[in-house]
Design a binder for these strands. Sequence first.
DNA 1: TTAGGGTTAG
Length: 784
Amino acid sequence: MGTTLPFHYHHHNLFLNTITPHKPTSKPYNTSITHKPKLTSCNLTRGLVEIVSSGSMQHALKLFDKMPQSDTFIWNVMIRGYTDHGFFLDAINLYHRMRYQGVRTDNFTYPFVIKACGVLLELSEGKKIHGNLIKLGLDADVYICNAIIIMYGKLGHIGSALKVFEEMPVRDLVSWNSIITAYSLVQQYLSSMEWFREMLRQQIRPDKFSLIIALDVCSLCVYCSGGREIHCFALKSGFALDIMVQTSLVDTYCKCGMLSYAERVFDKICLRNVVAWNAMIGGYALNGQPLRAFSSLKKMLKDDNLDVDNVTLINLLPSCAQVGAVLLGKSVHGLAIRKGFLPHPVLETALLDMYGEFGLLNFAELIFNQMTDKNLITWNAMIALYVQKGWNEKALNLFEELLSGYLKPDTVTISSILPAYAKLASLRECRQIHGYVMKLNYHSNLFVSNSIIYMYASSGDLVTARTFFDQMSSRDIISWNTIIMAYAIHGMGTMSIELFSEMKERGFQPNGSTFVSLLTSCSNSGMVNKGWAYYNLMKQDYGIEPQIEHYGCILDLIGRTGNLDQAMSFIEEMPLLPTARIWGSLLNACRNKGNIELAELAAERIMSIRHDNTGCYVLLSNLYAEAGRWENSEHIKSIMKKAGIEKTLACSTVHTVFRLHRFVNQDRSHMESDMIYNVLGIIISRNPGHSKCEEYVKKFKPSDLVRIKANLPENHSIRLAVCFGLISTALGNPVLVRKNTRICEDCHIVVKRISEITKSEIIVGDSKVFHHFRDGHCSCGDYW
DNA sequence: TTAGGGTTAG
């Protein structure tokens, strides 16, 4: 055995192999040299090709620099090497050096450079190269054109891609596959499938890659029947025996929710490889069958004697999350480390997601912070996690951090972060992010635009929410559900109902969520009969089986009537297991009726479900206090203390142009405190006949008064915020106050009165609904 | 002695 490699390269590589035993080059050189090779140019070139294909580009470059550089071929080899091994920028740079040094480029040079431009999203570079090609007369080369079509697809310029395709003097099968891929890349899946069909119409026989691309398109747009059509075609044309096609079929069926079809294809695969298994394991998670994913893994290891790769683990993690198997998840994490799969951005993001699902936020944060090559998907995962878990402030900070970096947020980022804006930001900030969305041209994306409706509605600006909705160029069912819900949380039931009819007129079929919006609206606006009517309509006319959310709404509706017996029997007759939300609804009804016994029962149930019970404890404790049962009230407080449950510090906020103003109960810290208390004093003095203090003096012994004085409604944060809002809000604009807990009955009465005296519209968003106070009335109809 | 499209992944 001999080698034609120059000796010093040999030596170099052996040395490398000794220091990095875990990363052998893919093609180790033969060491049994029997003769000293001649350093001919041909030998050098062969050596270069071999080193390049092994991926050690630094070594290749050293050799390259020593070689005569007039030869186009070796430049092409180098550029290919860079592109093949992911050094796209180096590929483009070397191409520039090649042109600078006056080396002739040829038809072999360009496909690699073009690919590099596509991957790096280098639009201007790509266009320049395209221009050069035309000058060089290479723009008719099939290989080059095919590469350009893909590049324009990646860059989102489908028009340019199509133009190249249409102007090609000769097209081959790859050209067709490329245009289908390009349409898929710009997410125009229907056009993509149209081109696939056009290909068949023109009697061009697809190859297995055509089928794989088309199947991928079907997965992406969940086009189930398309997947089946291609399956039929594959069976007729013999491609159904190809493992890559089979794997694609498994994947497509899984992504279209047709698990049994996927299993049938999978079982027919003769020699299953790890990729096929991965598709199946991932598919089980996707279809909510985590246990089957685990048993698949077992079979893969045992029956087929295959080993896991990083994709196996990536696909396995969602199953761990679904069954809440923390230990199992951690052991998969450990396995990933032992196998040397980490760091790996996709695997790390999958781990982050899983820990997030477990609620182990600190683990997720740890992974995020340790990651060296975070991409946009990683950032999106972390932001979405924060928002889902209600850590809105952290989400907003992280989003700010993302904006200050080089990554550009996409529509996923924006639709994830908007709910955090809805919860925390001022209207001004909401308008800012809205402007940013318009600038990025993301507002036509339905996920984004639906989130914008929600954002405006839940930050108190129903008018803008509606205007935005009206101006949307296209809407889906979620847009309608969102706007109906917007009016629901603002207690404007008639508007919700109006929109519901309009939605039907425009041909949208209501779904379960539509009725959640509608029923919430009826309940929040006190339209009890209408609520029941829609509940029946939903079941009878639309065949929608009520879910727990619907039962919750109906229970709120019953609660409003004060008929606690009916509420209780409704719960008992429900075919679903009552959740904390259900008992919470009953508890709320009990609070309004002052029925302590039933409230205790409801509270007990809530606590047994071990939901986040803070609100429930507070409510019960207040209920006891109002009834003068101090011992019970204190007892609840001590339970909370023992359990380490902190009562949410009630606060109310008002935004001015300059900043956020936050008020707590009895707050004296505000700069304008004196003025605020003066205004409050004037209003209270003009509101005789209502003071909880007087009531309490009549009701309780002096010793009790000391206990309750600390939290008298007299100086509740909401009143301070409303008064400050009256001072700081421009005349004619509504005063907008937000509160992190529910508004108390006493404050509700006072704010109604304030709206009457001042002739101002006052909007108070509490933790459940928006109260619109005007002329002494509230949109909630005094039930919330 | 070099090309283009391509199975499983967040």
